[in-house]
């Protein structure tokens, strides 16, 4: 199914970034994506950095807060910055995130390429015992 170039082109880098972010946030032990300073600047000064990047590169790329995706020749590379819960081993959480993202990408028909995970922070989970309710709040929090 992943052999159709037409199908692959229908999947935008933005969609992959979105999927990768959701997959990461659904993984146990992930508190949130960590916006980097670069990500915040992109947000604050609308356009300038993004435009530079667009004109610089031929491949399509997208940066949400904490997630950077490049798609070329049907292969998707993902860089993800996360904060993890102290109650989980950060390394195991990061491995789980990598595996899950690779699986999610292959479901889209694209080929998972390099998936790099950076654990920028390890923290106590905010006192929300229900893991289901943690996901939307984690989204809101980095959405400055």
């Amino acid at each position: 199914m992943s052999d159709h170039p037409l199908e692959a082109r229908l999947i935008s880098h933005r969609l992959i970034a979105d999927l990768a972010a959701r997959t990461a946030l659904d993984t146990r032990g992930v508190l949130r994506l960590e916006p980097t300073l670069k990500g915040l600047l992109t947000h604050l000064r609308t356009g300038t950095i993004q435009n530079l990047r667009r004109t610089d590169t031929r491949t399509t790329s997208a940066r949400h807060d904490g997630v950077f995706v490049t798609v070329h020749n049907g292969i998707a590379d993902v860089q993800l910055d996360i904060a993890t819960d102290i109650a989980f081993a950060a390394l195991e959480v990061a491995h789980a995130v990598r595996e899950q993202i690779a699986r999610t990408i292959s479901h889209t028909g694209l080929i998972p390429g390099r998936i790099d995970i950076s654990v920028l922070a390890i923290e106590h989970a905010p006192t929300a015992p229900d893991p289901l309710s943690a996901t939307p709040s984690a989204w809101n929090r980095h959405d400055l």
Binding site: A90, R98, G113
Partner: peptide, 15 residues
């Protein structure tokens, strides 16, 4: 080859 995992100094400090 399929990517790596990095941990920030600060995350380790917090630990």
């Amino acid at each position: 080859d399929q990517g790596g995992i990095r941990i920030s100094e600060q995350a380790i400090t917090t630990l």
